[in-house]
Design a protein around this nucleic acid. Structure first.
Lengths: 341, 341
DNA sequence: CGAACTTCCCAAAGCGCTTTGAATGCCTCA
DNA sequence: TGAGGCATTCAAAGCGCTTTGGGAAGTTCG
């Protein structure tokens, strides 16, 4: 069913039918009602491609999903972020266009979005400290919102981020309050902006209490369960082993727990653990009492906010283009006072 | 840069330029070279929307991501499936259009894909035993491939699935071989086709050995970590507690492990566990020796195969439209002989 | 040498929609 | 009564591409 067919059926011109459906005022109420009824009856919906061509707007947002070429790893938080963003998109009539790309050809993917003109805007994931995509996209002239920040960026850009520094600072402070002094940090890859900020928060908290950060207690890498496990085993085998561990992801924390328990130790008593928790829908941190003490911020909510911000930008609204969300620190069963050895 | 601009630049007609770029034979090699060079130099790429309108093909595949309305849960395997499918799409010039939808309005989402004509085909996730989407889509006339099967479907349809029955049958047999008789099953929601098949495999294996399936040992629900933990605690509190547990997802298995260890028991010694493992990129089952004994099948590979099948269907190739993948049973550290109590 | 092909290129139509500019009919008011 | 205004509607152009149907050269061959 095309517009032409529908208008023939109604004995009206395509112009009038189009206007009736799109809510233009130059159409009588009676006609509008008739048109709307006929459209519903025949299940008419405008062909997106034709409309996009005519209006110059694709009504779609692009997401580029980079896959770590080395580890073939998909970012696990991506599904929940997507779900949040997707809610907002469908509420606003936008589609979501996804492009899966090995992280080497990421720039190519953006360029292709721009030249093929099949999206009205982009969401950028996982920015690094000095992310080249930002100047690149500023040149490209396609609106975008970054999920996260890029500390060394010089030009302004729109972003939604969590206060990673503060989250890790508070978590470290809590551990210090509990008497811990040897606190390990299992962080994400440090060229990632969020990881750098988390370490900064951790170091700031230590420094504020006069504890010198010990580089041999800090690690950064892919945030997998296996990695968490292996590092924990290594750490706990040391004579001067840490009494507490700060972890950058729930999935890694699960590996840490496994490592601890393999040694017959008890989480929260022998070793304390605080993890960052993205509040993933398939990995909720316990029901009543959280399993893990955690700094939590919903990545799904971040998805919603980023999507809304991008749509606002596309529509020329001048709402704020920077949004810093605070993570909450929830007390669970994985922390306790430092034990005297 | 439009085709018109490029052709003016070259002193050629849009027709010729279009043909040169699309590999039609009615164009001299010399011209083709010139055109290709100019296109590259000016970063020209055809406007997707215009091309789609002209050719009647959207060059995009739709995925509908249903979100469990009750639990606000995103299927965790979805990200990896997507990654696999996405690889194949980009290799073939297709985009992936994603629609996030609460599971009540899912049908509406398909209908809208069909009438708006912005995709050439669909991938259907998580079919139930008697999935209404199949007859619905057969009427709609949009090609689709189901990830999974729907046992009660009457009409034929294209699918890629894992042999869930056989996987769980083999896993159960292994546990029986190890001397286990009281084997619990923590399954997914049983209106889901995969869950029903897994239970069938489990029951068949028991029956073959003369063990009567005990309904009080079978559970079905959302496959979360918390659920795995809670059910395990309940199970192990029973006087006639099971000596082995069969679990439908890695994430649930992690909760099971937590439950076991909280009770001071040891996984693989006091209680055996076999889990289904979708080989998620962010949750690899150990590095050398797998942590869990598992029936494993890569959901990412399933994504690749489903995508390829769909593209073949769209292009009218008559390649097979049913694909049953076998899961491998890998021995890990979570199984051992049943202990005499 | 001229007919019959080839080879290479182009003009124009058309995909299904939106939007501009104009036309029609009716009403109001001096 | 006729100019001007308003409410409705429509014809046609245009979005950027592909594709059909020629057409003008250049080749081949009897």
């Amino acid at each position: 069913m095309t517009l032409k067919e529908l208008s023939d059926l109604l004995g009206l011109s395509p112009t009038t039918v189009s206007r009736a459906l799109n809510g233009y005022p130059e159409v009588s109420e009676a006609t509008r009602k008739k048109v709307a009824a006929a459209a519903r009856a025949h299940g008419y919906a405008p062909n997106t491609r034709a409309r996009a061509l005519a209006t110059g707007r694709a009504m779609a947002i692009g997401h580029v999903i980079p896959i770590s070429a080395k580890h073939e790893m998909v970012n696990p938080i991506f599904a929940d972020f997507t779900a949040g963003a997707g809610e907002v998109y469908s509420r606003n009539g936008y589609d979501m266009l996804m492009s899966v790309v090995s992280d080497d050809d990421e720039e190519q993917a953006y360029r292709s979005f721009a030249t093929k003109r099949n999206v009205d805007g982009l969401i950028i994931h996982a920015p690094s400290l000095n992310d080249q995509r930002i100047p690149f996209l500023n040149d490209l002239g396609l609106p975008y919102v970054v999920h996260g920040r890029s500390s060394n960026a010089t030009a302004p850009y729109a972003w939604v981020d969590v206060n990673n520094t503060r989250a890790f600072q508070r978590a470290t402070e809590l551990l210090l309050d509990l008497g811990h002094r040897r606190i390990a940090l299992l962080n994400g890859l440090e060229h990632m902006d969020f990881a750098a900020r988390r370490r900064a928060g951790y170091e700031a908290a230590l420094a504020a209490r006069g504890v010198t950060p010990d580089p041999s207690l800090m690690f950064s890498g892919e945030m997998t369960e296996a990695q968490g496990h292996d590092l924990t085993r290594t750490l706990l085998a040391r004579p001067d082993r840490p009494t507490a561990i700060l972890v950058s992801s729930m999935i890694m924390a699960i590996g840490v727990r496994r490592g601890i328990e393999e040694l017959g130790l008890t989480l929260g008593r022998d070793v304390s653990l605080i993890t960052y928790d993205d509040d993933l829908s398939y990995f909720r941190n316990g029901s009543d009492i959280p399993v893990y003490t955690a700094t939590r911020s919903s990545v799904r909510e971040a998805g919603r906010r980023a999507a809304q911000m991008l749509i606002d930008i596309i529509n020329g609204k001048d709402s704020p283009t920077e949004l810093l969300l605070e993570a909450e620190l929830t007390l669970g069963m994985s922390t306790g006072p430092a034990r005297r050895d």
